[in-house]
């Protein structure tokens, strides 16, 4: 077992982990932050996406020890400081961009990274960027719509 220290959502945290412990497991089991979800074991589904030093990362593809000293942001850290939903989260609710909610943390984290890099993505760019995030409920329609809306683009014509 080794000690690992990092900042998660701005707070310093540390814990004892095995070398093989994945960042996703450390967040869920070690820190009891269960907002980050695990939907597969081949790094395909994207439910576990978090930000590590500002980059969107599937947290099942990293060992916890690799995040030593990193700044990690999870879904629990995405709301506004007063606890209200951020623009992106609010867009997901307004446009019914989630149903069962299981893929949602990864979707929001991926979408946030996309909008950081590309504040006005086209529909095709949104769909392309979400290739690493599976959703089985929404058929992606309202997820794409929500992300476009969060970027300030009106998609009413395209989507209806």
């Amino acid at each position: 077992m080794s000690n690992v220290t990092m900042k998660v959502n701005g707070k310093p945290v540390s814990g004892e982990v095995e070398g093989r412990t994945l960042l996703s497991s450390f967040l869920r089991e070690g820190l009891e932050m269960t907002g980050t979800h695990i939907g597969c074991d081949t790094s395909q589904c994207g439910a576990c996406v978090v930000h590590v030093n500002g980059q969107a990362v599937k947290s099942c593809t990293m060992f916890a020890l690799e995040a030593e000293g990193a700044e990690v942001t999870t879904i629990e850290g995405m709301a506004n400081p007063d606890g209200s939903l951020s623009v992106l989260q609010q867009a997901f609710q307004d446009h019914h961009g989630l149903q069962c909610g299981f893929c949602t943390p990864g979707m929001v984290m991926s979408a946030a990274a996309l909008l950081q890099d590309n504040p006005k993505p086209t529909e095709a760019e949104v769909r392309d960027y979400l290739e690493g995030n599976l959703c089985r409920c929404t058929g992606y329609h309202n997820i794409v719509k929500a992300i476009m809306a969060a970027s300030g683009q009106d998609v009413a014509v395209a989507a209806e």
Binding site: R28, T34, L85, L98, G101
Partner: peptide, 18 residues
């Protein structure tokens, strides 16, 4: 609008594995 969304969008859902 769905009231359940708030917990799902903030990582506060309560799934069985949680």
């Amino acid at each position: 609008k769905r009231r359940e969304d708030v917990r799902f969008l903030t990582g506060q859902g309560n799934y069985t594995d949680d």
